[in-house]
Simulated scan of single mutants.
Amino acid sequence: MLGPADVRRLAAELGIRPTKKLGQNFVHDPNTVRRIVASAELSPEDVVLEVGPGLGSLTLALLPACKELVAVEIDPVLAARLPQTAREQAPELAGRLSVVLKDAMKVAVGDLPAEPTALVANLPYNVAVPVVLHLMAELPSLCKGLVMVQAEVADRMAAAPGSRIYGVPSVKLAWYAEAKKAGMVGRNVFWPVPNVDSALVAFTRHDELVSDVDREKLFALVDAAFAQRRKTLRAALAGWAGSAAEAEVRLRKAGVDPGLRGEQLGVRDFVRIAEV
């Protein structure tokens, strides 16, 4: 397990200076990584996908808890050092680790040595939602996940219809999975210390939304519904449907009141509209 001194030593050895561009904030508190692993509820048969392992704090805590760990890292220096860190810190478990040098937003199933069943990661704040949505789309074997993200983003990912923070991320993640907040994380467990709070989001993939609707078309509908939050669906979907009148026709056929706003609809409502 890596403590604050280990993290700084490794960073100095590699000449690493955490960058905002890559959203790098390294966890250096062993208790926090243990808590993350416990909250992920992994089984000994799980193949875990970790995005942005950085210096390896969470990686080392995950290795004993799973069958195999695939770490996707965009930074070539960090990716090259991670297997060595695993051999140094956990030699008996290092064989479970595979490192893939790639941008997580470009990962496809063929890029990975095994099909992951769980996503556990401290995600860069600036790309957290796009990364989760991309991986859920590309990796159907992913059946659950626990990610640490900016607290505000966590609230949006797990928000329910009707709440002030419910929006596009809430609906799109709900298409794939049921999500819930799984706790807060203090700022002082990171180096460098971020100027925002963090939180954990847990999600479990469901297959209740089996539909012939094309995902891209559905997501385009969701984007249109939330593009102007204060407008009714009749007005907000005018461009999507071709006119406000046509939007009203489609909404009524789907059993949705045209006078509602996007934030009042659940993902199943959007599916019905897209099916029309």
Rank of each mutant, 00 (worst) to 15 (best):
E92L: 08
G186K: 15
A254Q: 06
P53F: 08
E115N: 12
P30G: 02
R8Y: 05
E45P: 02
N195P: 00
G239W: 08
H134T: 00
A235Y: 03
E208M: 04
N25E: 06
E263T: 11
V70K: 06
L2E: 03
L62R: 05
K144E: 05
E73W: 09
L139Q: 07
A244E: 14
V7Q: 08
T32M: 11
A241I: 07
L97Y: 12
F219E: 13
K217G: 15
A121M: 02
V147Y: 09
G239N: 07
V70N: 04
P53Y: 09
P124N: 12
A114P: 02
G183F: 05
A108C: 07
V201F: 11
G239T: 11
L49M: 10
K217H: 13
R230G: 14
L42M: 12
V72N: 08
G3V: 04
L22D: 12
M157E: 07
V37A: 15
M184G: 14
D269T: 01
G110C: 01
D207I: 00
S98T: 13
V193F: 03
I36S: 01
R9G: 02
R230M: 10
R272L: 12
A241C: 05
L218I: 11
L146D: 04
L233K: 05
A225M: 08
M105E: 04
K253R: 15
L119E: 03
P169Q: 05
S211G: 13
A159Y: 10
N126T: 00
D212S: 15
G262Q: 11
L14W: 03
R229V: 09
L233Y: 07
S211W: 07
V256I: 15
V256Y: 07
E13S: 13
V99Q: 12
A220W: 04
M184L: 12
R81Y: 11
L233E: 09
P53M: 09
V109K: 08
P76C: 13
E248A: 14
R250E: 01
L142N: 03
S141K: 13
V107A: 00
P169V: 07
L93F: 10
L251R: 04
A121G: 02
V27K: 00
A114R: 13
Q89R: 15
A159P: 06
Q84P: 00
E68L: 14
